[in-house]
Every structure is written in structure tokens, then in C-alpha cells.
């Protein structure tokens, strides 16, 4: 598929969608959102780009390697569950950093749940990309 409109639109939409996915990822602890949905939004952004410019560019990308994404995501999620074990001797217990106040974002609350969500985000992104690649009809 080759469409000028899609290509031009994707150039602007792609970074916006990635940003949106990160926002959704961050606010997930208390509001609708989280790693899974964020990962899916990111994956759909990548797929949009793949539709516009073709899979070859995605495959050449250094960051978007599905297996590596899944591996690091799993490691991050696993580590976040172990922090609770290390600090409080309880598996999967949330450990929070003290809350910071930043000028634009406002209250910034960081802890293991968000680390876990980042892991989930990466796994979902990797998994969705892997599936999309294997379903891609030109890929046989």
C-alpha cells in the first residue's frame, strides 16, 4: 500500500501516539490506563507506521526488536516483583519512592507498580509486533 496522505499523517501521528501510550502507561495506577493498554497503543502506532512505510523499516529499527523487547520487559517486571521481596520480605509488595513535585507534571509518584507496568508495556508491544510480523502476508 502506498498513500501520500497516510504517509504524511503517520509522520505526525506516530510520535503523538507513542506519547499518548506513555501517558496512558503512567496514569495507569489510579486511573484507567496501564501497561497493557499503553503497550497496545504503542503497538498500533508502530503498525500504522508499518502500513504507511512498510515493514522493512520497522525490521531495521534497533529498538523495535520483538523478542528483545519481550525479554527485557519480562526482566523488568520480574525485578519489580523482587524489590518487594528484598525490601519488605514480601513478594510483589509495592515499594514507593517519596513523592516529588515537578513543575509541569505535578505530583510524581514513582514505585514498583509503575516499573511492573513498564515491563508489561514492553512485553505487550513486543508480543503484538511479533504477531503482526508473523501475520504479515508478505512475510512468508
Amino acid at each position: 500500500m502506498d498513500s501520500v496522505i497516510l504517509r504524511t499523517a503517520t509522520r505526525f501521528l506516530y510520535p503523538l501516539l507513542i506519547l499518548l501510550s506513555l501517558v496512558v502507561l503512567y496514569r495507569g495506577h489510579n486511573l484507567p490506563g496501564g501497561g497493557f493498554i499503553g503497550g497496545l497503543i504503542a503497538a498500533s502506532a508502530v503498525m500504522l507506521r508499518a502500513l504507511a512505510v512498510g515493514w522493512d523499516e520497522i525490521k531495521a529499527s534497533r529498538i523495535l526488536k520483538p523478542i528483545a523487547l519481550m525479554q527485557y520487559g519480562l526482566i523488568i517486571a520480574c525485578v519489580s516483583s523482587l524489590i518487594g521481596l528484598a525490601v519488605n520480605n514480601v513478594l510483589f509488595q509495592a515499594v514507593w519512592l517519596p513523592t516529588w513535585y515537578l513543575p509541569v507534571i505535578g505530583k510524581l509518584k514513582l514505585g514498583t507498580p509503575i516499573v511492573f507496568d513498564i515491563g508489561v508495556y514492553m512485553v505487550v508491544l513486543g508480543f503484538a509486533l511479533l504477531c503482526a510480523k508473523s501475520l504479515d502476508s508478505n512475510n512468508n
Binding site: I67, A68, M70, Q71, L74, I75, C78, L85, L91
Partner: peptide
């Protein structure tokens, strides 16, 4: 008990690449 779940997981992740 934790290790019984964690060890296969770690091995799986390590073997992935």
C-alpha cells in the same frame, strides 16, 4: 516456594536470546 516459580522463569528469559 518462590524459587520454584522464579527459576523456570529466569531460565526461560535467559534462554530467549
Amino acid at each position: 516456594l518462590v524459587l520454584s516459580l522464579l527459576l523456570p522463569f529466569i531460565t526461560a528469559v535467559a534462554c530467549l536470546r
